[in-house]
Amino acid sequence: MKPFTFERARTPAEAAAAVAKQPGARFIAGGTNLLDLMKLQIETPPHLVDVNALGLDKIEPTSDGGLRIGALVRNTDLAADARVRRDYAVLSRALLAGASGQLRNKATTAGNLLQRTRCPYFYDTHQACNKRQPGSGCSAVGGYSRQLAVIGASPACIATHPSDMAVAMRVLDASVETVHADGRTRVIPIADFHKLPEGTPQIETGLEPGELITAVTLPKPVGGVHVYRKVRDRASYAFALVSVAAIVQKDGSGRVALGGVAAKPWRDESAEAEMPRGAKAVTDKLLAGAQPTGENAFKLPLAERALAAALSQARAAA
């Protein structure tokens, strides 16, 4: 790890100001991803602002019947919350499908949204990576790409977003609340939160320097059967090859988002009109325009079959 200075912030605005005033400074909450990357010198922040004492660790009902999840709510607590288990089960399921018990005890809601890709070329500092070092190229293109993106990628980057939680947040139409250094706040729909790589894969979200996530809000429950299916190389503690978050209503309508296929949770509301016609009709539309590599073309039929399994699971549970 490169040396860094360290401070503990007392208020969200103070934390935002502390990061905004020093180029390269970073917030640290759970630290489970950032410290891993700092040890490998993929991240080299000169200053860390510890946000753990900001009190953003509550899950509260909103005035419109939804739920406001503090940025620092740990993955374990969010997955175990009785309201989440009852009304937003797809979120509980997605969280529990990710990481290990130890990591979920530390990892936070906001940190999970901000975690970096596990593309092997991003992790290997001897390789070209436009995300890690803009302009250096992309060794993943033409390289080992089995785990990487099949849609929404660019010649500059074919990394995927690694989060399970974010896929559930996308299917639930969550919103991300933030605060700036000057105290201004804003609300970003989850659909707009993560950016596709295009020519600037180092820009992963629309957050401005020093902008701090304070909460993630869920709209009021939509009912239906909630399913999260994750397909991976081992039964536990592995990132998704493909995952499916689905909410299925009694009449067969519903919502679907995919994980493991793109740089952001992959959802297309217009494809959801095909839900009553079955998995193939949905994924044909949802993954139209996919450009897989030879090594990851298997993800297209895998996504269709994972969705078919999710729909079958939902019918059995209805």
Binding site: F6, I28, G30, G31, T32, L35, D36, L48, D50, N52, T76, S100, G101, Q102, L103, N105, K106
Partner: peptide, 21 residues
């Protein structure tokens, strides 16, 4: 998981957190 300890009642990976936190 070799570094697992219990902090404030919860098991965590002690390698992925700073003592100062």
């Amino acid at each position: 998981g070799a570094c697992t300890v219990i902090v404030d009642g919860r098991r965590i990976n002690s390698c992925l957190t700073l003592a100062a936190m």
